[in-house]
Design a protein around this nucleic acid. Structure first.
Lengths: 203, 203
DNA sequence: ACTCAACCGGAGCCATGTTCCGGATCCTGA
DNA sequence: TCAGGATCCGGAACATGGCTCCGGTTGAGT
């Protein structure tokens, strides 16, 4: 009987003990530090600097985030969720075609703001696999919904995969640093892509 | 008199001496090795592996290519030139609109084939600045010419910078490895972008 | 208070970009 | 042909950054 322990309190589900308080605190500190560091120096910032800023050793960091990419995922997960959630609001407020555009632009701004996120995402480095996967898992279905709606409403003429489009938009957000011009550039190119979705025929 | 030397042979321009034969040989060996290594393992392959393959020490490599990116630039310079040159042929054989499309697709295939080239190009890493610069110097004017011609012929309706479009297309070629699907994906997205150039109005 | 699993910290290992410099090599001038 | 010296070579060594290891510490049940 693996689940039986001497004291059968209210909950003794699965794990034998609850997470220790200091561990939880450290995780929080790390996430906050990572968020700050990534914002300042991009996702390529040294792991050590994150640990230092959080006031813990690298060992502690790696205990909670075995891979560098795990830390990155954790930091952006929340924002990705927010982005995905924004879709329902937008869908309710605008007709399918415009909803699609608006959500894509929302997504564009998210990716363009995170220095190096896009680069990491499609770097080919297998370390970022989980990040990319969460990307697809959480965001692709949302876009798919928007695309289907737009297609039904005859708002777009081209047939594209959600994943594909998502990747393309993310890719267009590369380059440049905090320079606002690069953000504009990305936006303009994304709009061009969106315009392409309305093109009468593809070559 | 800096240019005067004891023996005034036919040419004693600028530099005091011609490059040593062994040095030139090594440069060639390095370029060839780099080309092979990059093709196999992408542009992120270790510098040491290139030196080893060329049969020289890393010191020699760094003597000729002070920065990692210099080596990369040198390797791709030739191919970039070929791509740029292809434009004149294409321009002569097709009407402006189609010429634009064809050249862009030619460019797409070039970038998509080189693993990591696109990533390096817009990685934000200042080390790749010279590479990006050559990119603009050599390729941008070409595209600009094609764009102007297409605009004059009313083949496109949108107004974009050559540099901008070049960067966007390169960006769309990220991701994936030797997988042919990723190349297809990139192509499809580029076509979408091209279709966007013909869109009647931008939002 | 006692026990012990979970946790912490940071020294240390490995890979990779880059520098340094003693010694080998090639061109020049005679 | 030969000496002189600029040029070049090689690889040890340094710097940086990801990741591991393990002795010591600490929180949480009893």
């Amino acid at each position: 009987m693996p689940t039986s322990r001497s004291s059968t309190r209210s909950r003794d589900r699965g794990a034998s003990r609850p997470t220790r308080a200091d561990a939880r605190q450290n995780v929080d500190a790390l996430l906050e530090a990572a968020k700050a560091v990534f914002a300042e120096a991009g996702v390529n910032a040294p792991v050590r600097s994150v640990a230092e800023r959080a006031g813990v050793g690298v060992g502690t960091l790696y205990r909670h985030f075995p891979l560098r990419s795990d830390l990155i995922s954790a930091v952006f997960r929340r924002e990705m969720d927010a982005c995905a959630d924004a879709a329902t609001e937008i869908e309710a407020a605008f007709p399918p075609g415009e909803a699609l555009d608006r959500w894509i632009m929302r997504f564009t701004q998210f990716v363009a703001t995170k220095r190096g996120l896009a680069a990491a995402l499609h770097s080919g480095d297998p370390a970022y696999e989980p990040l990319a996967e969460y990307f697809s898992t959480r965001l692709a279905p949302t876009l798919e919904r928007l695309l289907v709606a737009a297609t039904r409403a005859d708002a777009i003429t081209q047939d594209v995969e959600a994943t594909e489009l998502l990747g393309a938009v993310a890719n267009l957000c590369h380059g440049g640093g905090p320079d606002p011009r690069s953000a504009e550039h990305a936006e303009r190119m994304v709009r061009l892509l969106l315009a392409g979705l309305r093109a009468p025929q593809l070559t």
